[in-house]
Write a protein that binds this DNA or RNA. Sequence first.
DNA 1: TTTTTTGAGATGTACGTATATTTATTTGAC
DNA 2: GTCAAATAAATATACGTACATCTCAAAAAA
Lengths: 356, 356
Amino acid sequence: MSTPKYAIVQEWIKSEINKGTYKNGEKMLSENELMEKFSFSRQTIRLAISNLENQGYLEKIKGSGTYVRIKNNNSNRETRNIGVIITYLDEYIFPEIIKGIENVLSDNNYNITLGITYNKVEKETSILNSLINKKVDGIIVEGTKSAMPNPNKEIYAQFKKHIPCIFINGSYPELDIPLCSMNDVEGGYMAANYLIERGHKKIGAVFKSDDMPGHKRYEGFMKAMHKYNINVDEKNILWYTTEDLEFLFKGDADAILLKRFEGCTGIVCYNDQMALNMIRFFERNNIKPFDDVSIIGFDNSTLSKFLDLTSVDHMKYDLGALAAEALIKQIKTGEKTGVKIKTEIIERSSVKDIRN
Amino acid sequence: MSTPKYAIVQEWIKSEINKGTYKNGEKMLSENELMEKFSFSRQTIRLAISNLENQGYLEKIKGSGTYVRIKNNNSNRETRNIGVIITYLDEYIFPEIIKGIENVLSDNNYNITLGITYNKVEKETSILNSLINKKVDGIIVEGTKSAMPNPNKEIYAQFKKHIPCIFINGSYPELDIPLCSMNDVEGGYMAANYLIERGHKKIGAVFKSDDMPGHKRYEGFMKAMHKYNINVDEKNILWYTTEDLEFLFKGDADAILLKRFEGCTGIVCYNDQMALNMIRFFERNNIKPFDDVSIIGFDNSTLSKFLDLTSVDHMKYDLGALAAEALIKQIKTGEKTGVKIKTEIIERSSVKDIRN
DNA sequence: TTTTTTGAGATGTACGTATATTTATTTGAC
DNA sequence: GTCAAATAAATATACGTACATCTCAAAAAA
């Protein structure tokens, strides 16, 4: 069994307390009410309550009820500890972000407490609860799917009253928590602009559809094309989802792809890994990448260095560093500022100048 | 009812502990034994044990039993915080290691406090000092260059007296701190063995000389060659340093490399990035990689997935996970154990079977 | 000999039932 | 209106059952 039922109840109670639904001293739902709410047996509910009692969240009074009673271990002393919550660590942009955060924070004598959510809301809840317990001086969060309604939103709302917060990549606008993010629209614009300036007119693109940055980069791409009055043939713009990767670039779909990108002299790719896919695709079909077709990627990853691929760098390190600086500023002065990170094209040899 | 049954059991256990019948660390009667002894139900016994656990008299270990473990509350109070110190984060093996550590620790309700040393001794010193201040429950360390004399060695010696430690990748043998590391010798052996079993006899290799794993992988490589009585031509083994990367694989040295690997049907590469270098090198010189020359890499990185490169996986995730488990074991029981991580070959299409 | 599998024993999770004790509110007698 | 009794609601104690999961050592296989 993945998460025991009693643990579900525990997490729920904890997060409700942290949200502020039940305040210190107030009466919690009775065992019977919790039974009905979760449709668990009374024993299971009692186990959860008993655990929380031992952890110092609740107090039971026989015959009366269960009450929130938070034991404040130590007062509001400085911990010089910052919580950093991210969705993933293995995707190649995150290590750089963390590096940026770590460098700034350690220069200011802060430690990092790291949490990884794997884009799962429940994991995020438990990390947030444990950070509240630990009393951090501030948090930097890359929230789980910010487009969807997130039950942790209320915890964040509670959080920001006492503890400085900074979001990175995405945020909940209604919460008024500052955001540090890369400028994907500008990145898409620059990529297209870079090709156009070197004489390319028929430009294809590959974007990820199930991802916010994908849409933003497309927006920037189109902006550049319109600025130069270049008609965009939608056929040349390929949208894919994570699931498409399985078959779309393995060779089976080459005939389709050839038609989609027929006559294109340059391709803007969603990221460097996609650029690699396209390079392999062209090689398989006797089209020389970089020479016959210019290619431009995103992320300026290790991959692009090895491939000698021109790539749009969104300064992942700076994103982390500036987020950390914004947080420290907020801790010191209370001033809430966000940042948009600059993008930059790292020139390598994958784009050919075809002007006469 | 005057005194509840569970209280009777509690009092009995307490007095037996105080009498010295069961000493600290010793195994208490099992739930079933207590059931029989008192003729109470298992739930009642469990309640008594659970209360004593919360009072700091007992500890339950699932699948093993209930043990006497008397906690002295005040001084060394639990922080449920583990320090993790690594040299780098951006090199591609580290995120996986951290993921392994994080998963195990968060399952056990520990937080991670992350420190990055960038292989600099002074940075390591300041991180260690700040962790001592923070009173972590344990640390997992990837030490800075363990071959060199490290002034932090004494800090570690102090550390390990009070706080459980685990080293990963490398350690200072004289400190007697357990080590979790990958088995590079075995990895080198497996890579060579894999090629030999598929009919390759003239096998080249590229190893990193300024790095411990490079030497270990070479050692394993030679072991396999000797086992099959294959004479190794030292000319076919290329050693490089970090600095060599600048010019050795950019094309200028192709003539030299061609001579070095003349006639080789397979190449063992120090890691996947080096494998990519070799692939590019062969392509430049009209030798079809994978077809004319089999190639095997190390690390099973994203790169190898994209290149469809057979690679030796040293289970970076497991390294982190097992190190974390070893640390938790040490915190709970005081038992100091290290682990050697298994290696495994991830088969893809870069090695050709050339047996007749 | 070494490695793998099996199995017994231990704790963990979960449900059901029944009765006891305490608290707080409502009801009813005065 | 006041006070005591009845009642409802809440937690406390206690037993039974079932199956899940983990540990460790013994047995079996390589």
